[in-house]
Design a protein around this nucleic acid. Structure first.
Lengths: 195, 195, 195, 195
DNA sequence: AATGAATGAGCATTCATTCAT
DNA sequence: GATGAATGAATGCTCATTCAT
């Protein structure tokens, strides 16, 4: 056995995930986390230095995984097709299966933590890949993009679509279907409008 | 005599708008609102009965205006055109000019108040007008909509687009342009996809 | 006209009398006193230095009058008769007509002020006159009083009887009748028991 | 392990009893209770939900015991004798031994709580038993009672006598003796006067 | 003489965190 | 390893008092 009991730690983490997901970092209560974990308040502090590090330890793996995933080439290759969309969705689904709760917390419940800008980071990243992919095409066709904020808007809108799906569904098949539709809706759309 | 009364109230309101906008209702601090307004804690309570009514008094006019606006016929008429989009954008712009900060608070920072479900209300309303408008058209064309959640997703995505624009811009002309683009992007898109 | 407007001062005093009588010194609210006097908060402080001196100024005359009255010889003459009781009641009634509210405040609502021990003072004084009057008689008859606290108890009981009457009735004739009955009840009683 | 828990609770209760007894419910300060108990403010709230429940938890047992005691038959049997007085005194003494401080708080320091009318309740109850017991006797003797308020006055006076004894003495033998004297004084007296 | 806006210390209560057991 | 008792700073709010007008 290790220095800390794995099972206790897991119960704390599970309880914290729910609490952070329900109330957000700032309004989450250590007492409630302890209670729902069936653990004493003090004992949490044997496993985690404080509320902030409890949050970090729970959220960091999801954050890292997300950052890695975002850098996968199939999110930024310069053209896309149905099969590429499916690569994309496959990749996303793998992350979601492991980290759905954490990602929702990252998106909306991380105010007051060092992760509070994660959603914005992702949006900015998606925006930049959108630009890389679409601008050359548009320039090649002589289209002048009047407002580059449209890329940001599209990116942000896209991400919110994701989170809307995440919040509603657990069924992977369903999620996969809807994400696919969302991509086609938005990026089918943007290609047509700009090209 | 009124002796600065109006000006103090305005300073409190301005400070509260910022505080609620930054931290949300629950995490906003009356002490901080007072401090940033350059006013003593106790003095706030001359103007507002308590934290909850301070929030209400600031947010309610925006909420009412929003609800009225939403019921305007040009948001739900059964077909749309560029000129109708412009009606829509005109209406929205009038609300935004007055209530931008308040609407952003309504959208994301009103947890713990009676307004906490406003964004969801609006999304559901938009969803239902979308269905009313598109379903007959689609049925008329023999298109079978496989998943009605797409209406919700589109509605939610649309609203988030709005709020993204709001957060970024203050210039009305700019906002008008972007909202117009957003509508064309999403609803141009959806018509094509479903029809 | 004097330095301060008499009428305003009177309105404040009347309002304060009611407030102190209802809630006692500590729980009385300067705001409420001002409101019920139809006067601004700040203005009270032109007439009275602070809450404590407002109380003092209202209560002091009654206190002084009470102390004077208590020293009147007919309260302590060494024997008593129906006519002496009537002297007593006459004296008391004169004080009550002027100072009923104040006396009730002195009795029960002066916690936190320098008058908080007034009731006790009076009880002790009555106790001592009781002793002066009865002890010689009792000794003369060879009666041994086992517990001098009985004098205190009788005195205290007597005073509470007074205040019970005061609280209930405003009609002087009624009060006079009841006070007379109370005296006969208690002091008729004590004479018989001890003699 | 319970680790001082019981002892801390007792210290809080003791301190609260003193504080409520000194200042009354409304003016009692949780800070002061904590300080005098040698406990931090927050810790009180581990043991008692709030000020109101701290008061209730301390006072309720005394209140219940008092109400039970009051309904004992020997307080209302239609005639009385020395032995019955001793039953009465025995009963009262048992309550007093346990709940002296609480009864004094109930009597004078419970404004702002659900117990604020307890003394009045008791007085009214005693008044009604007095009437039940004396009126038939008086009617039987052809005595006309001119003013029924005398029953209330006697009852109130009697109760105040009780509380006067309570405030002064802790010695049970002493209290027993004085209560006995008080009853004989007042009810010896009343019988003679009315009969 | 009067107003009522403004102040700030005080209140009851909560909660992340520490620590004796 | 674990408990939960204890701490104290922070919160929303009130109120006697002061002061600019």
């Amino acid at each position: 056995m290790q220095y800390r009991k794995k099972e206790t730690k897991n119960r704390i983490i599970a309880s914290a995930l729910t609490e952070f997901g329900d109330k957000g970092y700032l309004d989450a209560s250590m007492r409630d986390i302890a209670q729902n974990a069936g653990v004493s308040v003090g004992n949490i502090y044997r496993y985690f230095k404080n509320k902030s590090e409890l949050f970090d330890e729970i959220i960091e793996p999801a954050y890292c995984r997300l950052m890695l995933e975002m850098r996968e080439p199939h999110y930024s290759r310069p053209n896309y097709s149905i099969s590429q969309i499916d690569d994309h969705v496959d990749g996303v689904m793998k992350v979601l299966k492991q980290y759905k709760k954490q990602l929702l917390i990252l998106a909306d419940k991380s105010k007051g933590t060092k992760y509070e800008r994660t959603k914005e980071e992702v949006v900015l990243y998606v925006e930049s890949t959108l630009k890389d992919r679409l601008l050359p095409v548009l320039n090649g066709k002589g289209v002048k993009v009047h407002d580059q904020f449209m890329f940001y808007l599209l990116s942000s809108t896209f991400m919110e679509g994701y989170f809307t799906i995440l919040r509603r569904y657990d069924n992977p098949a369903k999620m996969r279907y809807l994400i696919r539709e969302l991509i086609i809706l938005l990026f089918g759309a943007i290609d047509e409008r700009f090209t």
